[in-house]
Design a protein around this nucleic acid. Structure first.
Lengths: 128, 128
DNA sequence: CGTTACCTTGACGTAAACGTCAATCCCCCT
DNA sequence: AGGGGGATTGACGTTTACGTCAAGGTAACG
């Protein structure tokens, strides 16, 4: 049963707005079927949406996601494409870990200031 | 010696562009002196810039920073204002830690997929 | 005095990911 | 026939933190 969902049902199912779905479509991330003018989302469209949302959680841009998705669409078994995807994922992972490291530093610094009761502004007074 | 720096010197000293300094001024974050039309940055202006850059590292928005800065400008010793600053800092810290937690989850998930050689797209194939 | 380097204001542009109308259209129900 | 409730397209708006001209002022050097 390849049950088809209307845009409203998709919104409810995936917690996104209709605008978002149309936006993704415009960006070539999803291609729902049409029944007249109305959109109908099949299994494939839903799978892609899930991947999009997942990619977003990973911090990929929509453009990155589009490329990954379309690469797989054309040939999911091409070794070069698999390698490319892997490469992108590794790079993104490195970014995330770097971001986490920075965040850790900032957290530690802010904690120190809070412990000193200094908030972030003691330096202003000191500089007068 | 309250040596005064020109905008160009400020750029070199703090690694920011002139546009950035003018932008901060327009946003009421910094108030340099004037010699004719030219800006001159005194000790206070420089202290504020440092705090701005620091606030940014903490992830505060410029608007947040402006409010904090101006609160202190009016009365750095007011208990209510100190409390407010502290409160903002604590809230921000909580945000940062939440963000860090999410990041950890995403990192772990992405690592798992990489380990499986699945990148992020295995599900697409599975859904066909 | 002329050139150069640096400065000024003002205004429009940019990026991402949608939000928010407006005008229409379509189907279903009573 | 008259409403509703959803859908559609198109187009402009939003946010943040600046970037990028353009046109012109000014100050120091030679």
């Amino acid at each position: 049963m390849d049950d088809l969902l209307t845009i409203g049902e998709m919104c409810a199912a995936y917690q996104v707005t209709a605008r978002t779905l149309r936006f993704y479509e415009q960006k070539e991330l999803i291609q729902p079927r049409r029944e007249g003018a109305h959109r109908l989302y099949d299994r494939r469209a839903r799978a892609r949406l899930q991947l999009i949302l997942r990619g977003k959680r990973f911090g990929f841009s929509l453009e990155d996601i589009r490329q990954l998705l379309n690469m797989y669409e054309r040939d999911g078994t091409n070794a070069a494409q698999l390698a490319r995807t892997h490469e992108l994922a590794v790079a993104r992972l490195a970014q995330m870990e770097a971001q986490r490291a920075e965040l850790d530093v900032a957290i530690a610094e802010l904690k120190t200031e809070l412990a000193e009761g200094a908030a972030m502004l003691a330096a202003l007074k000191a500089a007068e």
